[in-house]
Each structure stands twice: as structure tokens, then as C-alpha cells.
Amino acid sequence: MLTTKPYLRIRRPSPTTAEFIVSTRPPLTPPLRIFLYLVYLIRLIAGLEILLLLYSTWTLSPYSQSPPPTNRSSTIATASAPLLSLATLHDLLRAVQTTALGRLNTRVAAAAPAWVLAPGGLAALYLLLLRIHTEERLLVLRGLGIQTTTPGGATVLARGTTRFIPTGKIRDVLINEAFRGFEVRHYLVVVVEGEDDVVVVFPRLLPRPRILEKVWRGVRRCLFEYEGKAGMNGEG
């Protein structure tokens, strides 16, 4: 329900611009949009709870620092600390620990061994940060070039990569095939002048040949056929 096979969406913001999007996210109907918001909210609450449990485990361990002395100078320093600082975060977590939820996490952290809670909590956080959908984009700007956008790693914290290739450096756009295990996979590549390696478009999803052919025709029509027609008009 949350994911689907890679499919193609085409956006045309202007007559000279085309964007090809290969995504595993189903079309956003109103029920699916509401369901996704609920999933994101649940993941956020669960992540905060795991962080609070890990913090409680840390405060009970012998490696945690002793609380700062409550003298006048430390009170003044805390009062003058910036809003986003480690001291402010420490005070906030201490305040949360005094609540019913904080006391419950402290009892759980005291009952379970740290060598179980710490790896388990980190593994749960990793699962909560995994991407639900994968989306790769190819933006074609007539007369300027193309821009590829690929998401980063498996988690939402990983930064994606974006590359722009000017039209003057694009030698060709091709569909190649290669062996991946015991199957043949097709992929779209851009041959860049002066580079030995080709630029693979949609490298993570590797969509079906039917999608690649549609993107290939659209890219060539926008980049090369337009230039050929302009040259013919100039010669005439």
C-alpha cells in the first residue's frame, strides 16, 4: 500500500522544460495522504520515546557525567545560555525525566541491562529512519542541459546527490544493458565529453526498459531534435 513498482511521472513546467520522475510512491490520494501523515507521526513519537529511553540508560550508567553544581555562578551561566545549546538540551531532558513518562523510562532502563537496551534502541532508530519511498529525477532544460537528482543512502538523513551537465558537454544519451546476477538490466546513461565514465540516470531504481525508452525519447527530443530543426530552419 505504501510503495509500488517504479513508475514514471512527467512534469512540464514550461514548453522548454521537462522533468522525468521515477518513483516508488503510489499516487497521493486523500486517504493515502492522511495515512502517510499518521505513519510519519507515529515514527516521530516512537523515535522520541527511544531517544528518551537511551538517555535514561545513559544517566544510569557509570559513564555519565555528574550533574553540575547548583551554585549561583552556574545558575547565571545556565540562564544566559543560548536557547539551542547542550546545556539547554540537558535541562530539557532532565525536566522530561521528572514526568510520568520519564520515570517509566527510568524504571525500564534500571530493570534491563544497558548492553541490551543500547544496541536495540539504536537498531530501532535505524529502522524508523529508513526511507519509505525512493524517487529519482531527471530535469531537462532546453538549451541549458540536464540535471540528475538521486537520493542518498537508505535513511532519510543521508544527503542526495544532484549534478548538472551542460548541453555542450553532452555527447549522447543511450540505453545500455548489463548483467546483474543472472538477469539482464537496462539503464539510461549520459555520455559526457572529457569523462571516461558515463553518468547513469536512475541508478538506484533501474526502471523497466519501457520507462527508459520513454525517457530516452523525451530527452533526445528536447535536446537534440530541437537543435536539428533550428539548424534546418537557419539553412533554409
Score class of each variant (00 low, 15 high):
97 Q>E: 14
153 G>H: 09
157 L>T: 03
43 R>S: 06
103 R>I: 00
56 S>K: 09
25 R>Q: 15
98 T>W: 11
159 R>L: 10
56 S>R: 12
50 I>Y: 02
214 K>T: 14
117 L>A: 01
59 T>V: 13
230 A>I: 07
59 T>L: 11
211 I>W: 04
216 W>S: 06
89 L>S: 09
105 N>G: 00
169 K>W: 06
86 L>M: 10
160 G>D: 04
76 I>E: 15
30 P>H: 09
220 R>A: 00
191 V>D: 15
143 G>C: 08
165 I>N: 10
168 G>D: 13
125 L>D: 05
61 S>D: 08
51 L>T: 08
199 V>W: 04
48 L>R: 07
34 I>C: 11
43 R>V: 00
166 P>I: 04
124 A>D: 08
137 R>E: 05
235 E>M: 11
47 G>V: 01
200 V>D: 03
120 G>P: 02
82 P>A: 08
145 G>V: 05
194 G>N: 12
105 N>M: 12
29 T>D: 11
62 P>M: 12
105 N>T: 02
76 I>V: 14
108 V>E: 05
180 R>N: 09
178 A>D: 09
2 L>G: 01
8 L>A: 07
42 I>H: 12
134 T>I: 02
166 P>F: 04
75 T>Q: 15
60 L>T: 07
214 K>C: 06
63 Y>H: 11
181 G>T: 13
96 V>M: 15
235 E>R: 15
17 T>W: 12
150 T>P: 04
117 L>N: 02
127 L>R: 10
197 D>L: 04
109 A>F: 14
172 D>R: 05
201 V>G: 05
172 D>N: 10
107 R>C: 07
27 P>H: 12
146 I>T: 10
33 R>N: 09
41 L>H: 08
233 N>Y: 08
222 C>S: 07
132 I>P: 02
28 L>R: 13
141 L>E: 10
66 S>W: 10
73 S>H: 11
24 T>P: 04
92 L>P: 01
154 A>G: 05
141 L>D: 02
80 S>V: 09
19 E>A: 03
123 A>Q: 10
202 F>V: 00
137 R>V: 00
199 V>D: 07
196 D>N: 07
215 V>W: 04
116 V>K: 13
20 F>T: 02
164 F>A: 07
198 V>R: 12
213 E>C: 02
70 T>L: 08
147 Q>M: 03
31 P>M: 04
158 A>R: 11
89 L>T: 02
151 P>S: 06
183 E>H: 08
14 S>Y: 06
161 T>V: 05
39 V>C: 05
163 R>G: 00
21 I>E: 14
3 T>G: 02
151 P>R: 10
7 Y>E: 10
93 L>E: 07
1 M>G: 04
119 P>F: 08
41 L>I: 02
24 T>E: 00
165 I>A: 11
71 N>F: 05
134 T>C: 06
52 L>Q: 14
47 G>F: 15
100 A>N: 03
79 A>S: 12
197 D>I: 00
7 Y>P: 06
93 L>W: 11
18 A>E: 09
153 G>L: 06
64 S>N: 06
60 L>Y: 03
21 I>T: 15
34 I>N: 13
131 R>D: 09
78 T>E: 10
234 G>H: 12
